[in-house]
Amino acid sequence: MNSGDYTYIWQANDWPSWRFDLATLAGPMADVSRAQGLLMGRLADVGMALRDQASLATLTEDVVKTSEIEGEQLNAASVRSSIARRLGVDIGALAPVDRHIEGVVEMVLDATANCHAPVSRERLFGWHGALFPSGHSGLSKIRIGDWRDDVSGPMPVVSGPIGRQKVHFEAPPADRLETDTGRFLVWVNSTSNEPPLLKAGLGHLWFVTLHPFDDGNGRIARAIGDLLLARADGSPQRFYSLSAQIQRERKAYYDILGQTQKRSMDITEWLAWFLDTLHRAVDQAQHTLDAVLTKARFWQRWATAPFNERQVKLLNKLLDGFEGKLTSSKWAAIAKCSPDTALRDINDLLAQGVLRKLDAGGRSTSYELNDRKRSIDLSITHKLSAKLKAQRDIR
């Protein structure tokens, strides 16, 4: 360990004098910038309506996944409805939304849509209150609108289910928070020497190290990272989700976070991980855009088809990435109809050529969109064109 006589970086004599090797990070930063350029180039060609749909899909995933990292499952349809209503995007019938979902959505949208507004204590307290509208985390009452205290002992930063939690590090004492958060907020709101992408990675790390609230620190740290990324992009509209990528790499995230806390103030390794993860998040956004375009083309093709409400609902579920195999029994359960009605709906779509039956028969008969192969071809074509463009850029 390179930490000398201390256990955690916040105990170092030079805290918080962060250091990093810019020469080592220059290549990964350039890679992220190229990936962002490819994505924005495609988005520039699809029109405002499809950009709104892509942003809606990204924000929905971001809200769902930032909570999922903390072990909390949100209803994706309700999240999507809440975001669509706030952005003025028409998605047809809206799903019911509770206060808790509204709070998470409010925080994520405020962080990105108002990315250039100063980050203050009051703004952070507002985000925290939005995450916990009842003033409780589970059954435990927590402090809202104030920093945590140490009445119950030092603040451990943990991951994993209750009973099998892993402690990654310990946050600074509560009596330091007023000073430490004040210094952090001055840095966030001022013009600093760090390249914008690195500032986003550092802002995330710095806040999660402080862990100033009783709960919700991870979600707020990711919101701060998104706010700084939106500033770096020069656009409040989001088309990639770092939170979703962190959820896909959750173990690696907590591993690098814990390792960074027990080293020196040189955070080059953390920033390299952050940039690589961000690069993968931008690449993943290409698939999100593929799905948006596939869905748009599908409904353009079938715009005049006499689908009933149940059929529209199930087709949209298939287009949004239905997990598992669609059977007539699942159709009946989702559409809240009888098995006979479900089978009539399916047979009608088979006759029109919208669906096709998969090979297995009997009780395991399942169905998929007839355009599925076309969607796969679209994804392959996109990958090839992106690769060729990247090669041209290098030359």
Rank of each mutant, 00 (worst) to 15 (best):
M1P: 09
Y6R: 10
T7R: 14
N13P: 14
D14T: 07
R19K: 13
G27P: 07
P28K: 03
A30T: 09
D31N: 10
V32W: 00
G37D: 06
M40D: 15
G47V: 05
M48H: 14
A49E: 12
L50K: 06
L50Q: 09
R51N: 05
Q53H: 06
A57N: 07
T58D: 11
E61M: 01
E61R: 03
T66H: 05
S67I: 09
E68T: 07
E70Q: 11
Q73A: 11
L74S: 01
A76F: 13
R80C: 13
S81M: 05
S82E: 15
D90S: 13
L94G: 04
H100I: 14
H100A: 12
H100C: 09
I101V: 12
E102Y: 08
G103Y: 00
V104L: 08
V105P: 03
V105Y: 05
D110C: 02
H116K: 10
R123P: 01
G126N: 09
G138W: 08
S140L: 13
D150L: 04
V151D: 11
S152A: 13
M155E: 03
V157F: 14
G163E: 06
K166E: 12
F169T: 03
A171S: 01
P173W: 02
A174W: 00
R183K: 04
L185I: 05
L185F: 02
P196T: 03
G201S: 04
G201R: 05
W206D: 03
H211G: 03
P212Q: 09
D214K: 02
G218K: 02
R219K: 04
I220L: 13
I224V: 08
L227G: 08
L227D: 07
L229R: 08
A230D: 01
A230I: 03
D233W: 06
Q237L: 14
S241Q: 04
Q245G: 04
I246D: 06
Q247Y: 08
L257C: 10
W270P: 00
A272D: 09
D276L: 06
D276T: 14
T277L: 05
D283S: 14
T294K: 07
F298P: 00
R310I: 12
Q311C: 01
K313L: 15
D320L: 04
E323Y: 12
A335M: 09
A335C: 11
K336L: 08
P339Q: 06
N347G: 01
Q352H: 10
Q352C: 09
V354Q: 08
L358N: 13
L369Q: 01
R374P: 02
S375W: 09
I376L: 15
K383S: 15
A386W: 10
K387L: 15
R395D: 14
